[in-house]
Design a protein around this nucleic acid. Structure first.
Lengths: 144, 144
DNA sequence: TTTTAATCAGACAAAAACATCTGATTTATA
DNA sequence: TATAAATCAGATGTTTTTGTCTGATTAAAA
């Protein structure tokens, strides 16, 4: 089966969007995020740790601890999260799995695929969490 | 790590392109394909079996047996191979992994992502094996 | 008719991704 | 100061994907 983003990356984006949507409320626990997004607490905790290490979000330990965005949501791009969790392979690796695929030794699909990937990269690097944070609450409603 | 096509799908496209590039030569063994593409014979054999079952390629059993395209290369689209091996999830599943994502209950990225996926679908459904078969030989040269 | 060389089918093995568990550490509050 | 509630770190378990192996079947050629 083909996939675009790993499960960890999907949930990482969901979680960051949820944190952005909770503006005004200082700190959110991993338990609340897990409950709202209907995903396992243990798994999202691991992902939140990775995002904290990448300084996309910040954590506060101890009682009343939890997570918050590390910067203004209009400064966090979708691309930041994708690179932090999945890395850059999707943008650089050969779509047909050939080794050393480049414009010098292109695979058959290199030219056509590059265009689509460039567009995808552009979108992810331009769109910010701020642009999406309101939409996530509506989606969460539909999960209930 | 994120991926687009599964490894089986990558190699499936490679193999079909190789068969297309060998026009005039009636039948090609899985061993030749494996040697040329520098991939394990056993693995590509399994993939060739799947492509045979989907009637994208045809097989001939027994001594001097092997594989050939099941139809004219300008009738085989990249999409046919992707659907046969990876299915349609990549075109229909939510990019953020939410359940039941649609234009009625869209995820935050639904609209932007749909555009990119539609373009990708269009490309894969329009481009034929015929358009790419010559390029694969040049790529194979670079593997040697 | 026997041998040889190929695909086919299904079981098996290894690696990666996904998910969970346990215990340590941190910090607010009673 | 003791307790409770949170993150953190690392080990462990499970599932999926990737890759391999074995034996059966098929068909060409000696």
């Amino acid at each position: 089966m083909a996939i675009i983003f790993s499960r960890k990356c999907e949930l990482g984006i969901q979680a960051v969007l949820y944190l952005a949507s909770a503006e005004g409320r200082d700190i959110i626990s991993s338990e609340e995020i897990a409950n709202e997004l209907k995903i396992p607490k243990e798994f999202i905790s691991k992902i939140l740790q990775e995002l904290t290490a990448s300084r996309i979000i910040a954590s506060k330990k101890g009682k009343m601890g939890g997570f918050s965005l590390a910067k203004n949501p209009n400064k966090i791009h979708l691309l930041d999260i994708v690179l932090a969790i999945d890395g850059s392979d999707i943008f650089s690796k050969c779509v047909l799995g050939f080794p050393h695929c480049s414009s010098e030794t292109p695979c058959p699909m290199h030219a056509t695929w590059s265009q689509l990937i460039d567009e995808t990269f552009k979108m992810l690097s331009e769109e910010t969490i701020d642009n999406y944070k309101n939409k996530v609450l509506r989606k969460i409603e539909s999960l209930k």
